[in-house]
Nucleic acid binder design. Structure first.
Lengths: 232, 232
DNA sequence: GAACCGTTGATTGTCGACAATCGACTGTCA
DNA sequence: TGACAGTCGATTGTCGACAATCAACGGTTC
């Protein structure tokens, strides 16, 4: 398997540290990226044989990679029937975002209760970078920092199981983001929202922090849902 | 693969409908039960070759079964190093139960908001059975109904993603239950607690319902944590 | 024409063999 | 003695071939 398979243009330069990880993980990574970037559209069939040929590996690791992604919720598999990229309807979007809100709220509670005041500095840093990118009009970079912000926030909750569930949700969120039609969000407003959350966390105002996180998620949900077109 | 493998005494009579499901699922089921019943203790190594021989199948489906259980959080796998039944320390227990509380609370919110008033009858039925078993002193049956109660409650929240995450948590809870040293819970009290929850749901008193669910989970947590001995 | 029933092609499921990796062991050398 | 390189055994990783399964197709029968 050599890179630049599965997709003609640029792909898979990052994460070269995978060099001698098990093949299944590398393949899973390739497929995951393809799905999250929207190169593999929902409903697209993933047949083991075809993928194995394209990637020039045997079916075994491809098969395992597909299973991995199935467990991550990015792929639907049916015994003896094959696998397809999972399709997302409005209900799926609502479910993902509602649970996202739930878990972020939980994280906020734990952060306010717990100590770890220095970890908040990381969040502030991310906010600053986000604002700089917003000034530069680099929406892509803003999104990247956005994701980093929330992941770091979850980490600060110091809860392994929460983090692992969050990781799954986060994948789904990314898939949704890659599919939504329009992304008309004011980057400066986004950056400001995050600053407000950090401030509330820092001053340990639980209610305020919860309110702001919920607003933030609600806002994102609304934006995505509004522009959503179901695969009907 | 014939049943009564992997464990000399009685096992695997239930779920015969699996007859021609893929082998990996049947194997996963066998292993899952073994772990959940405590037959496979935490830390026990699971080597593909050995299991394949014991079960008289090839390594491929065993391998996939192990992967399935790894994703379910019952097994720890390390590349090239092998797999072991996951060990649980006090922190794991706290994490599992805290998330359990979070998700049940979320379910309660949705049930109170949503319609589905007839689904609550199921819960009432389960409570009645639970009480009967409590009268008969059949603690095992009470536990079974307990689990059924909570699963049904989650279903009533009508949230697919929640249900799937809950299923994972539920497995962990069962593993914990199978390992805890003592189970000194008054069955009648347990039954009564569940009745109270249903009443609050029926009258749509969100705050009351939430409080009761949280108390219920907190009670269970305390009971388990107190009798917990870390693998040190 | 509709229900039934093999056939067929595509796909996944299962298998046994071989390769790659890792940790532990061992023997050497300073 | 202690550090280091090489070897060895155990285990997982990968492979290609064959078997099982399923849906769709087409022919047969009534």
């Amino acid at each position: 398997m050599n890179s630049s398979d599965l997709d003609s243009p640029t792909r898979l330069p990052r994460q070269v540290e995978f060099t001698n990880a098990p093949l299944r993980l590398r393949i899973a990574s390739v497929l995951r990226d393809a799905i999250l970037e929207g190169d593999l559209r929902p409903g697209a069939p993933l047949t083991e044989t075809a993928l194995a040929e394209q990637l020039e590996v045997s079916r075994a690791p491809v098969r395992e990679a597909i299973r991995i992604l199935a467990k991550e919720g990015l792929i639907d598999s049916e015994p003896y029937r094959g696998s397809r990229v999972r399709t997302l309807d409005r209900r799926d979007v609502e479910e993902v975002y509602s649970l996202r809100g739930l878990h972020e709220s939980f994280a906020v509670e734990r952060i306010v209760q717990g100590s770890a005041p220095d970890g908040l500095d990381d969040l502030t840093e991310i906010c600053e970078r986000m604002r700089r990118h917003a000034d530069a009009g680099d929406m892509r970079a803003v999104s990247a920092e956005d994701e980093r912000f929330h992941r770091r926030m979850i980490e600060l909750a110091d809860h392994t199981l929460l983090a692992s569930i969050w990781a799954q949700l986060s994948l789904r969120v990314r898939q949704i983001m890659s599919l939504r039609n329009l992304q008309i969000e004011d980057p400066h407003r986004v950056a400001e929202n995050h600053v407000l959350i950090v401030e509330a966390l820092r001053s340990k105002q639980l209610d305020v922090a919860l309110e702001r996180v919920r607003d933030h998620v609600r806002e994102g949900t609304q934006l995505v849902i509004d522009g959503w077109s179901d695969p009907s």
